[in-house]
């Protein structure tokens, strides 16, 4: 049993401390928006916020993050209206959608830290996340939009 703080709530997870955070979120806490893509920290489909910083949920255990504030896509906003989510709709970013939770979480963490990122800063940050459908041009536009309108 491990105690976690997820999306502003204290929760108990009935799993061993060495359980990857990704699978605890998905299968124990039923927060399915955090996706499994590679399990190797290479694709970013599992990106969540740990104390506000973008992090790969597949690369940490629940024992690692017991004292941290964990935010998943489900907790990014109450009603799906975070400026990044709104920009993602305005720019019609997603195709298959599978990587997009992770893309949005990384973009939101970037803008929280750097509200007016340059094009190069956006590209540098978002290079951690893969999108096989090729939504990258729209991801850049959406982040620029969120920075302007957010």
């Amino acid at each position: 049993m491990v105690n976690l703080n997820v999306n502003g709530r204290a929760v108990e997870v009935n799993a061993a401390p060495e359980t990857p955070l990704l699978w605890a979120l998905r299968d124990e806490l039923k927060l399915k928006g955090t996706r499994y893509g590679c399990g190797a920290g290479m694709c970013g489909a599992c990106t969540v916020h740990i104390d506000g910083q973008a992090a790969f949920a597949c690369q940490m255990t629940i024992g690692d993050v017991g004292g941290s504030e964990i935010t998943t896509i489900e907790g990014l906003s109450e009603t799906g209206d975070h400026s990044v989510q709104q920009a993602w709709i305005a720019e019609q970013v997603p195709q298959c959608g599978y990587c997009q939770s992770g893309q949005i979480m990384r973009a939101a963490a970037l803008l929280a830290r750097n509200p007016r990122p340059s094009r190069q800063e956006i590209v540098d940050e978002m290079s951690a996340n893969l999108c096989r459908c090729g939504t990258y041009p729209r991801i850049i536009r959406a982040i620029e939009r969120a920075a302007q309108e957010g």
């Binding site: 499994y36 998943t72 989510q85 993602w88 997603p94």
Partner: peptide, 21 residues
């Protein structure tokens, strides 16, 4: 027109077979 599936895809809501329980 906006794609009908996009709002859900910004909130983690879509259910893929890997999410079925």
């Amino acid at each position: 027109v906006e794609r009908l599936d996009i709002p859900g895809k910004t909130t983690g809501a879509p259910v893929y077979s890997i999410d079925v329980e």
